[in-house]
Simulated assay, not measured.
Amino acid sequence: MRAVVFDGYGDGSVLQVRDVPVPDPGPGQVLVLVEASGVNYMDVYQRTGTYQVPLPFTLGSEGAGTVLRLGDGVEGLAAGDRVAWTGVPGSHAEQAVVPADRLVPVPDGIATAQAAAALLQGLTAHYLTHDSYPVRAGDTVLVHAAAGGVGRLLTRIVTHLGGRVVATAGSEEKREIARADGAVRAVAYEDALAAVRAVSEEGAAAVYDGVGKDTFDLSLQALRPRGTLVLFGAASGKVPPFDPLRLMQGSYWLTRPTLGHFIASRHELLERAQTLFGWMADGVVEVAVTGRYPIDEVRDAYAALEGRRTTGKLLIIP
């Protein structure tokens, strides 16, 4: 079978598509025929060495497909079942071995590729809006990079929960997407503070910031007293060290969460996934797949993601 592998850290040129042996599922594992796998910034962090991984490494941590074979001790699944997963390395491949307790059944009415596109970003948007900062009706929330995959989901979910989204995006085309998703204001980054104050004089109850270095100072300035800055990504680079006394200016809360801690138990994984798939079925959220790349074009997919030329979700089709 073919898989996307890299032997050393670097830019997209280190990615190679290789023939590798078909893996065997061990006890508690399942072999899945991969229909689609998601393209995510987590993969970039692994490829560049920001997140250290054992080398050589098979890229991709999210996907969906059909069960082929069960390892010993696996119950509740059968060959032919449609399943999705996230947080499992080796997903940019024609077949993948996944722990059974990390698999989520894909319900009728949700296409397999849509499940692959939804899980990582959808579960992330769920815990951000329900745990990192639980959105309340009437809250003003600033969402950076609102036309991206997580940004679009955040805008729709915050609006569904009764909040008001001020969105930032890098072009008017992207800002129009944010408005269509429900943002009450969608502006360029340099206009974010004025837009937040126009919606709420005291500032934003929360800022959801997946951009990082370039927006960190702006995000702090946009908060109301006792507001929460949720830093969940670093698309522009890591935030440099800063003096925690800056938080005292408004008794701000700062958190840097990661998805793994919010789906650590199978119960929590299934509960969040069930809510997400229900939102998808009801039209509360839409997962916009804006690019499908054959596995041989994996470098192009990541070039588009890192160049911030995307307005939705990209998939690798093995």
Rank of each mutant, 00 (worst) to 15 (best):
A116E: 06
R292K: 11
G10S: 10
E75P: 00
V17Q: 02
P25S: 03
G8M: 04
Y45Q: 06
D24V: 14
D300S: 15
R47F: 12
T228C: 15
L103Y: 07
L77C: 11
A78L: 08
E271S: 14
L247M: 10
P56C: 03
Q95R: 15
E286T: 15
H130K: 07
S91A: 15
S265Y: 14
T290E: 11
A111T: 01
I110F: 05
G73N: 03
L15T: 14
G71Q: 11
V20W: 01
G148T: 10
G237W: 02
D296H: 13
R175G: 02
G122L: 11
H267E: 12
A64I: 09
W279Y: 11
A125M: 10
G149D: 05
R246I: 07
A116T: 12
H126N: 10
L15A: 08
S236W: 05
G307I: 06
V284H: 04
A147V: 13
R292M: 03
A301W: 03
V5H: 01
P89H: 10
Q121W: 04
Y45V: 01
A304G: 10
T140I: 07
A169I: 00
Y133L: 08
V298N: 00
D19S: 14
H261P: 04
D296K: 15
G307S: 09
D181L: 13
A115T: 00
E190R: 15
K213C: 01
G138V: 02
V298L: 08
G87A: 13
R266P: 02
G149P: 07
A146C: 05
G149A: 15
S200P: 04
R102K: 12
V207P: 07
G170H: 08
K238N: 03
A96L: 00
I317M: 06
S37N: 01
T258F: 08
R164L: 08
P240L: 07
P294D: 07
L33I: 03
P23E: 12
P318D: 04
G312C: 08
F216D: 02
A288Q: 09
A304Y: 05
A222N: 04
G148N: 01
V74A: 00
A147L: 11
V298R: 05
A303E: 12
W279F: 02
A186Q: 12
S91Q: 01
T311K: 08
R266W: 07
V196P: 03
D11I: 05
T275C: 12
G151P: 08
R69P: 06
F277W: 07
L161Q: 14
G283P: 06
L223E: 04
D217T: 12
G151E: 04
P56I: 06
S251T: 09
H130I: 12
V106Q: 13
A111M: 03
I157K: 13
P257G: 01
A198K: 05
T124H: 07
D296Y: 04
K174P: 13
G210D: 06
V88Q: 06
V53E: 02
E190W: 06
A194N: 08
G73Y: 03
L123W: 10
A183E: 12
H160F: 09
